[in-house]
Amino acid sequence: MTGKTQAVLLALTLAMTATLAQARDRETSGKLLLTGGVTSLEGAGGGGLATWATITGYETVDEVGANAHATLVQLPDYQFRAGGVAVGFRDRVEISYTRQSFDTGDTGSKLGLGQGFTFNQDIVGVKVRVLGDAVYAQDSWVPQVALGVQWKKNDKDAVITAIGGKDDSGVDYYVAATKVLLNQSLVLDGTLRATKANQTGLLGFGGNKNDDYELQFEGSAGYLVSKRLLIGAEYRSKPDNLAGLKEDDWVDIFAAYAFSKNLSVTAAYADLGTIATFKDQRGLYLSIQAGF
């Protein structure tokens, strides 16, 4: 285990203990447990890989809700870390900030980048719920629909240029549709994203193979096992902009457990395919989310 992994795990444990202690008296009732989803890896409310139309936090139309998340994905040749905050306003608007780190570890030297070379990316997101109601409108098939924008800025411009990327920053636009089907105990999401991002932006934006916006799909299907437990699977299609650095679609199976409204943990087994020539990047995805 690297020092950084230990630091992240320690932070996770501390956050968990602190939040559990306070969970009881801070429970609010803005939303029903887990119906608002967890935090996706780009920091917006959603599943793990997919961004949903739900507005983060357990606030209602009258309130403001916020949460912080820490995410770790341990892959055979890389480690992905993310941490950030998201605020939901009146169940209408969500603003999020997340910093992602893609640590190449020992692989860094093999790629000629240097031991422990790490790409970092800042993501600011805004999401607005435009129509529908995922949870209450159970007499209608109309999903909750939200429009969102994510501004992404990578800090490794020189390397991105060297591998054939066109830009160190980019903007994603998405439309997400989410529905809870209570009669079937299902949570479904389908999201269309217009993006130029290579590996969500960790390897820059656009490339020598393609530099146009492409429409990609991401989606989740979950089954509500109990009030606290949601299990499911996700899929996310990706562009393939860099010649020689083939990019694969992502899939995962996940379990999200809500200890309380203020604390949930998502564990997933994710298959991220080939990343920067290293094949079969499958591993454990662990994310903790604490609400305020």
């Binding site: 209450y136 409108a137 159970q138 209608s140 209570l182 009669n183 105990s185 509500l224 096992v225």
Partner: peptide, 17 residues
């Protein structure tokens, strides 16, 4: 059972309106 609870809640939820 939780899934039966949800089936009843599916009837009640729209009454929020």
């Amino acid at each position: 059972a939780y899934r039966h609870q949800n089936q009843l809640l599916a009837k009640l939820a729209p009454m929020k309106r």
